[in-house]
Design a protein around this nucleic acid. Structure first.
Length: 737
DNA sequence: TCTGTAGGCGTTTTT
DNA sequence: CGCCTACAGA
């Protein structure tokens, strides 16, 4: 194949990045600078021009979507020659390694992958084993801590050795128990997948050598988002041949909270001496105003390498800013604009994206879109494979594959209810712990003990379902197996009996699951692993899939997603919403400078998603947790040069009558406080029994009773239309009448 | 043991 | 506000 065919159309820097095949290479690629292009052309160049076998190339990404896109584009360049490239996420690559070699760590190759919910269950079990109260020791927080340790590449004993205080030591002990429980369940959590791989390589150099020899060329995408373990893994694999190419952008490092360390990319040239580095600064995506605005914002970060993006796209709209009265007004504005562009300019709905900081913000937009009957997709939030009904069925299958999967067992022993309640389960747990058995096995033996007699018949039904499924698995393809399980377990029947709209939608989801399993079956027909059945492969896949991965950019739907999810995507028309202090930047990021800088990078990522039009909005008043909060526009807004912004309107607050106010501003309650809430109430406002007030929702009413004072003062009010309600003075937004 | 409901609590971002 | 858990009653 001719080198020119592959490098054609690349700019000089991109071309250099493609042709520099040997030795360590750092590509600093600004937003929209053709990063994926470089990666894919580089792979094609290695194979097509240098004659490197596809099998010798490893390319790692963070999302399956990025991996899929890359494979597609390489295939376009090479045709079927692209088969055999190891191309996947860090997690999927490591799972493949572990499926082959984890037995060296004295573990079973048939392990299951635990998701967040499963692992939270294990944390709770951990606390139980230590006789600790989950109310005192927050399970989520503990899990987060374990995860951080894993991200750092630390096993329990190392974590304990590094512990700064008694409390951390205690957590490290819990971590040890947690790992033991995972081990017993023959399960790995997300963090383990990476950590155990690094462990494997560290302890068995000969296995590492095998992979080093196999993958002569290693490419890493989004290198700025790698954490410690990922860094170690890359290092291990690149040792020896040192053909390591990493691509990334320090300005787009937005995963520090997950243990990512920008230093990995910033220090690359020191880590790998004689590394070459190439900067891609030409932007092919956005107009100049958008680029200038985004750059102006991120330039406020002190800790960043100098880099300026430029574009040939001359002209372009200024950024438009709308300050909304409240979240509903904000949604109305955004949807109105989308509708107008669709109607007047024939813009396909798929060209528009609404980006927000937190998932919870999607609601008001969703409502409005529904109202206007505009098609949309929400990426993230509740994931398909995390829906209760889907997880339930999958739990049956997981238990078939791996009887040690106690989380799966606990999830479905009594689902649908078959009379195996809490007491029975607790007894079985005790029995299992004493005998050192997995729970299913323990249940089988428990029913033969004298105290187990009572549940014998009920448990027998469950156990026979399990053995029926085990047999069905031998002869049925995955989608039929799932369908079989839905019937055999009585799951569908139970839902049908409910008859609620909710149950119906669950049935729909389960149908969709069967359909998608059939797709999987068809797609995987040819590469069957004799060692591992279809079911195992399927379970791996669903465990590692994310919502974004199944997101197809359909041309006819508005996209709604968090800024994090939007990384790597682009849209002609972008609405960056909720640009308010304490939302973006988020309140929890304000504890240290690093937090604010990460938020600022996040803002940069958000703005650079826009190709042609960028709208920014903020709302003065917002309901959160059902309470009213007042916030000021984000500091990031002030960082955009004035001449690049067109302000569309000043929000005016409707003023009717005197507001009920509290004399003193609210003291900050804690780090999470949204203290822009307007505090009202107290005697100063003149609220007393008999006072007539107006509530924004309930209308006119009369105060029946005043309860408490200060911040937590509540009023019992009899409303003319809404009846008697109790409201918190400081959130109710009352007016004196 | 199951089912319904009251109360508490939470939201940052995700492979 | 809405979800989940804990608890009470059947």
């Amino acid at each position: 194949m001719l080198a020119e065919t592959i490098t054609e159309g690349l700019n000089p820097e991109q071309k250099r990045a493609v042709e520099t095949t040997e030795g360590p290479l750092l590509v600093l690629a600004g937003a929209g600078s053709g990063k994926t292009r470089v990666l894919t052309h580089r792979i094609a160049y290695l194979i097509g021009v240098c004659g490197i076998p596809a099998e010798s190339i490893l390319a790692v990404t963070f999302t399956n979507k990025a991996a899929g896109e890359m494979r597609e584009r390489v295939e376009k360049l090479l045709g079927p020659g692209a088969d055999g490239i190891a191309l996947g996420t860090f997690h999927s690559v490591c799972v493949r390694i572990l499926r082959r070699d984890i037995h060296h760590l004295q573990r079973d190759r048939g392990f299951v992958i635990y998701d967040d919910a499963d692992s939270l269950g294990v944390v709770k079990e951990t606390l139980r084993r230590h006789d600790m109260d989950p109310k005192v020791h927050d399970p989520r927080r503990l899990r987060w801590r374990f995860d951080q340790w894993k991200n750092q590449g630390l096993l329990p004993d190392q974590a304990r050795a590094d512990a700064a205080d008694i409390e951390e030591e205690q957590s490290a002990d819990l971590y040890a128990t947690y790992q033991k429980l995972l081990f017993d369940a023959n399960a790995l959590d997300f963090g383990d997948i990476l950590l155990q791989t690094v462990q494997l390589f560290e302890r068995f150099p000969r296995i590492l050598e095998y992979y080093q020899r196999r993958w002569q060329y290693v490419l890493v995408d989004e290198y700025q988002d790698t954490n410690r373990v990922q860094y170690q893994l890359v290092r291990q694999l690149a040792e020896g041949h040192r053909n390591i190419a990493v691509v990334g952008d320090p300005d787009q490092s937005i995963y520090a909270w997950r243990g990512a360390d920008v230093r990995n990319i910033l220090d690359f040239e020191e880590d790998y001496e004689d590394a070459r580095s190439i900067k891609l600064e030409r932007n092919y995506r956005s107009t100049q105003p958008i680029l200038s605005a985004a750059t102006a914002v991120v330039k406020n970060n002190l800790d960043r390498p100098d880099k300026t993006l430029f574009t040939d796209h001359d002209g372009g709209d200024p950024i438009r800013y709308y300050e909304a009265f409240d979240d509903r007004d904000e949604a109305a504005f955004v949807i109105g604009r989308i509708e107008r562009a669709h109607r007047e300019e024939d813009m396909p709905y798929g060209h528009a994206a609404i980006l927000y900081r937190t998932n919870a913000q999607s609601r008001s937009f969703e409502e409005r879109l529904l109202e206007y009957d505009i098609p949309y997709t929400i990426v993230g939030g509740q994931r398909f494979y995390e829906r209760a009904e889907v997880k339930d069925v999958l739990a049956y299958l997981r238990l078939v594959v791996n009887p040690a999967d106690n989380q799966a067992f606990l999830r479905i022993v009594n689902k649908p209810t078959r009379g195996i309640g809490k007491t029975t389960i607790e007894r079985v747990q005790v029995f299992a712990q004493r005998e050192g058995l997995p729970l299913v096995t323990a249940l089988g033996q428990y029913v033969d003990t004298p105290e187990g007699q009572r549940v014998r018949a009920k448990a027998g039904r469950f156990l026979s379902i399990m053995s029926d499924l085990a047999q069905a698995r031998e002869r049925q393809p995955i989608h039929e197996l799932i369908s079989h399980a839905l019937h055999a377990t009585g799951y569908l029947e139970a839902l049908a009996k409910e008859g609620t709209p909710e149950a119906e939608s669950r049935v729909d989801n389960l149908k969709e699951l069967v359909t998608s399993a059939e797709d999987f079956h068809v797609a995987n027909q040819d590469d069957l692993d004799p060692d591992r059945g279809e079911l195992e492969l399927y379970l791996d896949q669903v465990a590692l899939i994310s919502d974004l991965d199944s997101y197809e950019d359909r041309n006819d739907r508005v996209s709604l997603m968090t800024v994090h999810s939007a990384k790597g995507l682009e849209f002609p028309l972008v609405f960056l919403v909720g640009l308010e202090e304490r939302i973006f930047p988020h309140a929890s990021s304000m504890r240290d400078d690093g937090g604010i800088e990460e938020e600022r990078r996040l803002c940069y990522v958000a703005m650079t998603r826009a190709m042609r039009h960028l709208f920014i909005t903020s709302a003065n008043e917002r309901r959160r947790f059902g309470e009213h909060h007042y916030q000021s526009p984000s500091r990031f807004l002030a960082e955009v040069p004035e001449e690049l912004i067109e302000v569309l309107s000043e929000a005016r607050r409707p003023s009717r009558g005197q507001r009920v106010r509290q004399a003193e501003p609210a003291p900050v309650r804690d780090g999470y406080d949204y203290s822009y809430s307007q505090d009202m109430g107290g005697e100063e406002g003149g609220v007393a029994k008999g006072t007539r007030v107006r509530h924004p929702v309930f209308g006119l009413g009369e105060v029946l009773a005043v309860m408490g004072d200060g911040l937590n003062q509540k009023l019992k009010i009899k409303f003319e239309r809404a009846g008697v309600k109790t409201v918190m003075v400081r959130y109710a937004n009352l007016e004196l009448v």
